[in-house]
Nucleic acid binder design. Structure first.
Lengths: 114, 114
DNA sequence: GACATATTTCACCATTTAGTTATATATCTT
DNA sequence: AAGATATATAACTAAATGGTGAAATATGTC
């Protein structure tokens, strides 16, 4: 499974997005992360494992606690894909606009000067 | 299932991302989209249905063909979520940096003036 | 109307996912 | 060493996913 696959899969779940949003405002333990949800604690642990495998969070040890924090690089990768995609898409539409301009201007499609 | 759920789920599959990338350079039929893959054609139809349900593509009719094209608004929504998330994340780190600066400057954490 | 082509739908299968409860492990406290 | 707390793992279940081949549907053509 590619990096982007696991990243987008991880982001596809609302619980996991909520966990990430919570972590954006600082480190938190499993208990703290479980609190807002009706889910069982093992369910949250599972979600955390998915986020960790996707490289979206890292975990440390503090006594009996295993605090989580965000690892921003991986998200940057996903953003990058979307951004590249948008560029491709924009390029296509600039080309299409130019073509339409040309047709309107004089029925002679060719290179433009802007 | 929320919009973001279906969007990110759709983006989590490499075949579907490849289809989107192909569509970024212009409309294409199911046959054309199937061609690069070893998958059966019904498999591609399924992927297209997922993309359509997610609002990532639209479809029209041209004789017996059902050409697909990208619908950019939905992708913009996903990008927006990532962007908002990044802002939250950045804000946290600006706050943390300020705190560290304060500690270095004189052991008196408090509001800054920049 | 018969035929060919493009696409969808159907019935099925294997795998993965998200959840559960119960149990195990690890660490701190006494 | 015993007990308490935080977390992980195990065993299980129900539903979703991604694939298949075979058949149905829709449209254009002869």
């Amino acid at each position: 499974m590619s990096d982007l696959d696991t990243t987008f899969t991880a982001l596809a779940d609302p619980t996991r997005r909520a966990i990430l949003a919570r972590l954006a405002s600082g480190e938190a333990t499993v208990m703290e992360l479980s609190e807002p949800f009706t889910l069982s604690q093992p369910a949250i642990s599972k979600h955390l494992k998915v986020l960790q495998k996707a490289g979206l969070i890292t975990r440390s040890r503090d006594g009996t606690r295993r605090p989580c924090r965000i690892q921003p690089e991986t998200l940057a990768q996903a953003t990058h894909w979307l951004e590249e995609f948008r560029k491709l898409w924009d390029a296509r539409f600039r080309a299409l606009d130019d073509l339409l301009d040309d047709m309107k201007a004089g029925h002679e499609p060719g290179p433009r000067d802007h």
